[in-house]
C-alpha cells in the first residue's frame, strides 16, 4: 500500500523517470541526426542558396523547375529502367540460384554459395573499373565472346545500351547477395510439406508453385522492397562506370543528379527538392509493393 509520502520519494520518482532515461539516447540521436536534418532539408527545398552566407525564399519554384527539367525526367526514367531490370532479371536469377544451391544434387554447394556471394564484398569502384574493361566496345570481353546482335555494341558509348550495361553489372554484384536471403527462406520451409505433396503425387513444379513460393512470400517481399529502394538510390556504380552519367546523361540517376546539384552546382535547395521527390517516389513504390504482396493482410 502506498502512502502520499511514498509517491514523492526518491525511489518512486526514479521508477517513473528511468524508462524515459533508458530510451532517451535513441530519441536524442534520432532528433539530432535524423529529425533535424529531415525538417531542415524540407525547409531548404523552399529556398535557394545565394552564395555561401545567404539564401532566398523561392516558394514552390524548385518543385516547378524540377518538373520542367528534362535531365530530372531522364534520370528518373534511367533509375526506373534500372529498377525494372533488377526486378525482372536479378531477383528471379537470385531465386533460381538459391533453389539450385539448396538442392542436394549440386556438388560443392558451400563453395558456390560463397563464390556467388563474394561480388557484394567488392567495392563499387573496383567493380566499375573491371566492368569498364568488360564492356569495352572493341577489346571488351562481352563483345569479343558474345557478339549478341552480331555486331559490336557500344555498351558505354551508345545511349541506349548504357543502362542495360549498368543492369548487367548490378546483376553480377547483387544477385548472390539476394540469393542468400532466398536461401535462408528456403531452409526455413518444412520438409514435411514437400514429403506430403510427393505422397499426393505432386511434381516438382507443383511443389514449387504451391509450397515454395507461398512459403517464401515474406522473404520475397523483403527482397523486392529492399532491392527497389536500393535501385532508386543507385549512385556509385553508374557514377564511375559512366564517368558521371555520360554520354548525354544516359547514365544519370536521380541520386547522381541530386549529388551534382547539391555539391557540384551548389544548388542546395534544388538538391533538397530532388531528395524529397525521391523520398515520395520510394515511399509510394514500397507501399504499393507491400500491398501487392499482401504483407498488410492479416494471416
Amino acid at each position: 500500500m502506498k502512502t502520499g509520502r511514498n509517491r514523492f520519494s526518491y525511489w518512486h520518482q526514479q521508477q517513473r523517470i528511468a524508462p524515459y532515461l533508458f530510451i532517451a539516447p535513441f530519441y536524442i540521436l534520432f532528433i539530432v541526426f535524423m529529425g533535424y536534418p529531415l525538417i531542415s532539408s524540407l525547409v531548404m527545398s523552399f529556398y535557394e542558396m545565394r552564395g555561401f552566407q545567404s539564401r532566398i525564399y523561392v516558394g514552390f519554384a524548385n518543385f516547378v523547375d524540377l518538373f520542367r527539367d528534362p535531365i530530372f525526367w531522364k534520370s528518373l526514367w534511367n533509375t526506373t529502367y534500372f529498377a525494372l531490370g533488377t526486378l525482372i532479371l536479378q531477383l528471379p536469377l537470385a531465386l533460381f540460384l538459391a533453389i539450385l544451391l539448396n538442392s542436394k544434387v549440386v556438388k560443392g554447394r558451400n563453395i558456390l554459395r560463397l563464390a556467388f556471394f563474394v561480388p557484394v564484398l567488392v567495392a563499387g569502384v573496383f567493380i566499375a573499373i573491371i566492368f569498364n574493361l568488360i564492356f569495352d566496345q572493341r577489346a571488351g570481353l562481352i563483345n569479343n565472346e558474345f557478339l549478341i546482335f552480331g555486331k559490336e555494341i557500344g555498351w558505354l558509348s551508345e545511349e541506349k545500351f548504357v543502362i542495360p550495361a549498368v543492369i548487367l553489372t548490378g546483376v553480377w554484384q547483387w544477385a548472390g547477395f539476394n540469393m542468400i536471403f532466398f536461401l535462408a527462406g528456403l531452409q526455413g520451409i518444412r520438409q514435411e510439406l514437400y514429403e506430403a505433396a510427393a505422397v499426393d503425387g505432386a511434381n516438382w513444379w507443383q511443389s514449387f508453385i504451391h509450397i515454395t513460393l507461398p512459403s517464401l512470400r515474406p522473404v520475397i517481399a523483403f527482397v523486392f522492397v529492399v532491392s527497389m529502394i536500393g535501385s532508386f538510390q543507385l549512385f556509385d556504380l553508374p557514377f564511375i562506370l559512366t564517368n558521371g552519367g555520360e554520354p548525354a546523361d544516359a547514365g544519370s540517376t536521380i541520386v547522381m543528379y541530386l549529388y551534382k546539384n547539391g555539391f557540384q552546382f551548389m544548388r542546395l535547395g534544388y538538391a533538397a527538392t530532388i531528395g524529397w521527390v525521391l523520398f515520395i517516389i520510394i515511399a509510394i513504390i514500397s507501399i504499393a509493393q507491400l500491398k501487392l504482396l499482401g504483407i498488410f493482410q492479416e494471416e
Binding site: R50, F52, Q53, S54, Q264
Partner: peptide, 30 residues
C-alpha cells in the same frame, strides 16, 4: 564553408571544382 565551421586554414582546390565556390556575392566567397 557553408556551415561556417570546420574548414582548414589552407586548402588545395581542383580547377573544375573551384567554380561552385565562387557562387553568389563575391564578398561571401570562402
Amino acid at each position: 564553408l557553408l556551415s561556417d565551421f570546420g574548414a582548414p586554414d589552407v586548402v588545395e582546390v581542383e580547377i573544375t571544382s573551384i567554380g561552385r565556390f565562387l557562387k553568389g556575392d563575391i564578398d561571401e566567397v570562402g
